[in-house]
Amino acid sequence: MSIQHFRVALIPFFAAFCLPVFAHPETLVKVKDAEDQLGARVGYIELDLNSGKILESFRPEERFPMMSTFKVLLCGAVLSRVDAGQEQLGRRIHYSQNDLVEYSPVTEKHLTDGMTVRELCSAAITMSDNTAANLLLTTIGGPKELTAFLHNMGDHVTRLDRWEPELNEAIPNDERDTTMPAAMATTLRKLLTGELLTLASRQQLIDWMEADKVAGPLLRSALPAGWFIADKSGAGERGSRGIIAALGPDGKPSRIVVIYTTGSQATMDERNRQIAEIGASLIKHW
């Protein structure tokens, strides 16, 4: 067993022997301040990774656009098919120029040779490549099948209805392509620590998230040296922004954090800054 596999296998073990965790309302004060600064709703939840206990939450059962955070769930569904012998990570998928959609920095470079399922998941999570996500959605049967996968996990809230990039439209009061912070946090925890996926697939999923290259201005910008984070960000229309993450000190994750916002007129930089400040408060009061 590799060191990384050992780390993920012992996530519940280490967490069980940690000192009790206590909620700190100071972080919620910052979440509410972010709402004021952005002029928009902000949803927040913080779960203990081992027990699933909610440590703090704000608007945990209000719907927010998922945006690209759905790509972690998508690759979880792909990995479940791999575990069941219905898919192979090494299978190569070929596609054409007509398949390319807006923001496809990886797939646009491989029109000639195609990409493997493993490479597509890596591109979808680490670079948020939209064509990679659409190609992977095709392998599982489309958005409705991802929703069905989530329902089978016990998540009857999260739903995907459309493809990239239309799913980022974020129309107010439109339930399409949305989740709730509580539902997303619980589902992410199941994917990373539950028995739904094999140990190898859980490790692969967290490795992809740990290698995320496009979430630097968010929670990662607030992390002290030595902290662990595996995350996936999302951005959408109407001032929408979000991030889902597993993080913790001492090089291992111990909490799940989900943050979503929508309806702001603020710039992307300002949305990023507010999420980073929430992260800084979380870490300060850990």
Rank of each mutant, 00 (worst) to 15 (best):
24 H>S: 08
24 H>I: 09
25 P>T: 08
26 E>A: 02
26 E>M: 13
27 T>L: 08
27 T>A: 05
30 K>L: 15
31 V>P: 13
33 D>L: 14
35 E>A: 01
36 D>N: 12
37 Q>D: 08
38 L>H: 02
40 A>G: 02
40 A>D: 06
41 R>V: 08
41 R>N: 11
42 V>C: 15
44 Y>S: 03
44 Y>G: 03
47 L>Q: 02
47 L>A: 02
49 L>Q: 00
52 G>E: 12
53 K>S: 05
55 L>Q: 04
57 S>R: 02
58 F>T: 03
59 R>W: 06
59 R>P: 04
60 P>I: 05
62 E>K: 08
63 R>D: 03
64 F>T: 07
65 P>G: 03
67 M>S: 15
69 T>H: 09
69 T>C: 08
71 K>I: 12
73 L>W: 03
74 L>T: 01
74 L>I: 08
75 C>Y: 00
75 C>R: 00
78 V>H: 05
79 L>I: 04
79 L>D: 05
80 S>H: 09
80 S>M: 07
80 S>I: 15
80 S>N: 11
81 R>C: 01
81 R>Q: 07
87 E>V: 08
88 Q>V: 03
89 L>F: 01
89 L>I: 02
89 L>K: 07
90 G>Y: 12
91 R>L: 05
94 H>E: 14
95 Y>L: 10
95 Y>C: 06
97 Q>G: 03
98 N>P: 07
100 L>W: 14
100 L>S: 05
100 L>Q: 02
100 L>G: 07
101 V>G: 12
102 E>D: 13
105 P>K: 04
105 P>R: 04
106 V>P: 09
106 V>H: 03
107 T>C: 01
107 T>A: 11
107 T>L: 05
109 K>M: 07
110 H>I: 06
111 L>R: 03
112 T>W: 06
113 D>K: 07
114 G>A: 12
115 M>P: 06
118 R>P: 05
122 S>N: 10
123 A>K: 14
123 A>N: 02
124 A>M: 06
130 N>T: 09
130 N>W: 14
132 A>T: 06
132 A>V: 04
133 A>G: 07
134 N>H: 04
135 L>C: 01
135 L>E: 07
136 L>V: 04
137 L>V: 06
137 L>W: 04
137 L>K: 01
138 T>P: 01
139 T>C: 01
139 T>G: 11
140 I>K: 07
143 P>D: 08
144 K>R: 03
144 K>Q: 03
145 E>R: 13
146 L>M: 05
147 T>K: 01
152 N>I: 10
152 N>C: 12
153 M>S: 06
153 M>Y: 07
156 H>V: 11
157 V>R: 08
157 V>T: 10
160 L>H: 06
160 L>Q: 13
160 L>A: 07
161 D>S: 00
161 D>I: 02
163 W>R: 12
163 W>P: 13
164 E>Q: 01
167 L>I: 02
167 L>E: 01
168 N>H: 08
169 E>N: 00
172 P>M: 04
175 E>M: 03
177 D>I: 11
177 D>F: 01
177 D>V: 07
178 T>I: 13
178 T>L: 12
178 T>H: 13
179 T>Q: 14
180 M>A: 12
184 M>G: 09
185 A>W: 12
185 A>R: 01
186 T>C: 04
186 T>H: 08
186 T>R: 00
187 T>D: 11
188 L>I: 15
188 L>Y: 13
189 R>A: 13
190 K>Y: 11
191 L>E: 13
191 L>V: 08
193 T>D: 06
201 S>Y: 02
201 S>R: 00
201 S>Q: 01
202 R>A: 04
202 R>G: 01
204 Q>I: 03
205 L>A: 04
206 I>A: 12
206 I>T: 12
208 W>R: 03
208 W>P: 05
209 M>K: 05
209 M>V: 12
210 E>I: 11
210 E>D: 13
210 E>M: 13
211 A>P: 14
212 D>S: 15
214 V>L: 15
214 V>P: 15
215 A>K: 15
215 A>G: 14
215 A>Y: 15
216 G>H: 13
217 P>V: 09
218 L>G: 15
218 L>T: 15
220 R>F: 10
220 R>I: 10
221 S>A: 14
222 A>H: 15
223 L>W: 03
223 L>V: 05
223 L>S: 04
224 P>K: 02
227 W>H: 06
227 W>F: 11
227 W>M: 12
227 W>T: 02
228 F>A: 15
228 F>M: 15
230 A>S: 09
230 A>T: 11
231 D>S: 14
232 K>G: 14
235 A>Y: 14
236 G>R: 13
238 R>I: 00
239 G>D: 08
240 S>A: 09
240 S>W: 12
241 R>A: 15
241 R>S: 14
245 A>K: 11
247 L>Y: 12
248 G>D: 10
251 G>K: 15
252 K>Q: 05
253 P>W: 04
253 P>Q: 10
254 S>M: 02
255 R>A: 07
255 R>M: 07
256 I>W: 10
259 I>N: 02
260 Y>M: 15
261 T>V: 01
262 T>F: 08
262 T>Q: 09
263 G>E: 10
265 Q>D: 10
267 T>L: 08
267 T>D: 05
268 M>R: 15
269 D>Q: 15
269 D>L: 09
273 R>D: 09
273 R>F: 15
274 Q>D: 11
275 I>E: 09
276 A>T: 15
276 A>L: 12
276 A>D: 14
278 I>A: 14
279 G>A: 14
279 G>L: 15
282 L>V: 10
282 L>Q: 12
282 L>E: 06
282 L>W: 11
283 I>W: 08
285 H>G: 01
286 W>Y: 02
